[in-house]
Amino acid sequence: MTGTDIDDEMLMAYADGELDEHDAARVEAVLSDDPSIVTRLAVFSRTREALVSAAAVRRADPLPGQVLSRAQVAIETAADLESDAKVVPLARPDRRLRFLPMSLAASLAVVGFLGGYVLSPYARVEPQDPRFAILGTTGLSEELDRLPAGGRAAIEGGEVAIIASFRDATGALCREFEVDSPDATTVVSVACRSQAGWDPKLAVVAPADDGTQYAPASSLETLDAYLAAIGASAPLPIEEEAAALDDLL
């Protein structure tokens, strides 16, 4: 074999330690016989050295503090959601379990209905109820357009956290989310996207969790019953969710 039998990619793979023993031996056999191939190999071994030493300098770059602190907040938020899911004492479909918020605590009140569909024995509250108005909060619909599941953002008068995205039986994109207000009220909602924007479908008010209350199975079944009634799909994987959000733009 001669140097012309060995192409650039093979030489590069040799320089990068990517060849198996057999192919590496082939390259080495030619290297000792053909000085021209040493020159060709040098292009790859020396560019690798240059890049590895450049990378070593870059590794010394300090990580900006806000990158670390934002990541830590995201990790804590995710850990909270995760541990909350674990304390919910009920057998429910796997589709939402790991997203389940602790704030779905006792004494839930259903405040919104789809077409008068009665979901639970809880008292019905008319749409002008101030708690329902949270769905018109400035900035909320923009965040529904933008945030991935698990994301949080500040909106007027509180914070929104996206729990999951799914599609209803008609294929409309729906998002389950909660809005936390400074008065310790948490509203868990489902909104689906239409031509006109985000239509609120269901809102459940839950008192903010004080660590002593656990969600009764029946309150969660309310949400499940609703999701089953609209033919909700399983939560969209992040890639599909991202594509669905892109389609809104």
Binding site: Q66, V67, A74
Partner: peptide, 20 residues
């Protein structure tokens, strides 16, 4: 750098959501 910081954050959030 500012876009890079946002990208890292988006990545972290998506990774946490998809960790299973």
């Amino acid at each position: 750098s500012d876009i890079a910081d946002d990208l890292v954050q988006t990545c972290v959030e998506r990774a946490l959501a998809a960790r299973v």
